[in-house]
Simulated assay, not measured.
Amino acid sequence: MTEDLGHGLVEGGVGRAVGGRAEGGAAPSGLTLTLIKAQLLGLLADKGIDALGVGTEGDPALLARLLSYRTKPDPGFPVVTP
């Protein structure tokens, strides 16, 4: 089963990340986040939405589901090889 977890980003001081597709009049998104870069980095570092003061509209559980697809990086991965 494939899940449709789309996203959109708006340039400028504030960005939006959305689950689903709301841009262009498509189906409404399940979650809209209003945040700045520092808050986005905090979310990726497992700090909570409330602790970071991220504005939400919709179901915050969708963010937890999206972030559950992350995997721990392999510290031995050769980013640059000779």
Rank of each mutant, 00 (worst) to 15 (best):
M1H: 09
M1C: 10
M1G: 15
T2Q: 12
E3C: 13
E3Y: 12
E3W: 10
D4P: 13
L5Q: 09
G6V: 03
H7F: 05
H7W: 11
G8A: 08
G8P: 05
L9W: 11
V10R: 06
V10N: 05
E11S: 15
E11T: 15
E11V: 14
G12D: 02
G12V: 08
G13Q: 04
G13R: 11
G13T: 10
V14F: 12
G15P: 10
G15H: 14
G15A: 13
R16S: 09
R16T: 05
A17H: 14
A17M: 12
V18M: 09
A22R: 13
E23T: 12
G24M: 07
G24A: 12
G25A: 14
G25L: 09
G25Q: 06
A26E: 10
A26F: 03
A26K: 07
A26W: 04
A27K: 14
A27E: 15
A27M: 13
G30F: 09
G30P: 10
L31C: 01
L31Y: 01
L31R: 00
L31E: 05
L31M: 02
L31S: 04
T32G: 13
L33V: 01
L33H: 05
T34Y: 07
T34S: 11
T34E: 03
L35A: 03
L35Q: 02
I36E: 08
I36Q: 15
K37I: 11
K37D: 15
A38D: 13
Q39Y: 01
Q39E: 01
Q39G: 01
L41M: 15
G42Y: 01
L43N: 08
L44Y: 12
A45G: 06
A45Q: 02
D46Q: 11
D46C: 08
D46I: 08
K47V: 13
K47R: 15
K47G: 13
K47F: 15
G48T: 10
I49W: 02
I49V: 07
I49G: 00
I49Y: 02
D50T: 04
D50G: 03
D50K: 02
D50E: 01
A51L: 00
A51H: 00
A51Q: 10
A51M: 03
L52R: 06
L52S: 05
G53S: 07
G53K: 04
G55D: 02
G55Y: 00
T56W: 07
T56L: 03
E57M: 05
E57L: 01
G58R: 01
G58M: 06
D59I: 02
A61F: 09
A61T: 13
A61N: 12
A61W: 07
A61G: 15
L62M: 06
L62S: 00
L62T: 04
L63K: 00
A64S: 03
A64Q: 11
A64E: 10
L66F: 09
L67F: 09
S68T: 00
S68K: 04
R70Q: 01
R70C: 01
T71S: 02
T71Y: 11
K72S: 11
K72Q: 09
P73R: 13
P73H: 11
P73V: 14
D74Q: 05
P75R: 03
P75T: 04
P75I: 03
G76L: 12
G76H: 09
F77G: 05
P78K: 03
P78E: 03
P78I: 04
T81Y: 04
P82M: 09
